[in-house]
């Protein structure tokens, strides 16, 4: 986790340099370099981009709450799961998104591009207990 101070500096720098330095585009296909049944390996590029601004395109999963700063981004639209009431049915290569500000999550099922700071490594959300491996934080999103 970045400290508040480093984050602020980062935010200012990002603002100043916005036209020149766009966020790096990443893709679901290249998050991991291997998907073994004994675990995944992050791709070298994802590890290298840790802490940097990235943009990822995917689908907003049905949100846990309507108004939230937290949702799950998936490679494909989540439609086929008749008992999809729990994270048990979610794909393993999900990316957890923490938005900058609470937003009504009206885009479930829609293709969106999420931009924010990349976090890599196992983390348990203190509020929901949700475990994730890759996160984009201080994020915003737009429909594509």
């Amino acid at each position: 986790m970045l400290t508040r101070r480093r984050f602020s500096i980062g935010a200012v720098l990002a603002l100043l340099s916005r036209p020149a330095k766009a966020a790096e585009w990443i893709a679901f296909d290249t998050l991991y370099k291997s998907f073994g049944v004994r675990g995944f390996e992050f791709s070298d590029r994802i590890v290298a981009l840790k802490g940097q601004e990235v943009t990822l395109t995917g689908y907003m999963a049905p949100p846990l709450r309507a108004e939230s700063t937290f949702f799950v981004l998936t490679r494909e639209p989540l439609a086929i799961c008749p008992f999809c009431q729990s994270d048990a049915d979610w794909p393993v290569d999900i990316v957890v998104i923490h938005l900058k500000a609470e937003t009504p999550l009206v885009s479930a099922g829609a293709k969106i591009a999420v931009s924010g700071r990349l976090e890599v490594g196992s983390s348990t959300d203190p509020d929901s207990g949700f475990v994730s491996q890759i996160r984009i934080v201080d994020a915003s999103y737009r429909r594509v």
Binding site: V37, R38, S122, V131, Q133
Partner: peptide, 22 residues
């Protein structure tokens, strides 16, 4: 369904604890 056998610290795990069931 291997992800529920892997400790949560392993990328690709779906567990919420540190048990490695394999």
């Amino acid at each position: 369904g291997s992800p529920n056998f892997l400790a949560k610290s392993t990328p690709g795990s779906k567990r919420t604890d540190d048990e490695d069931y394999i």
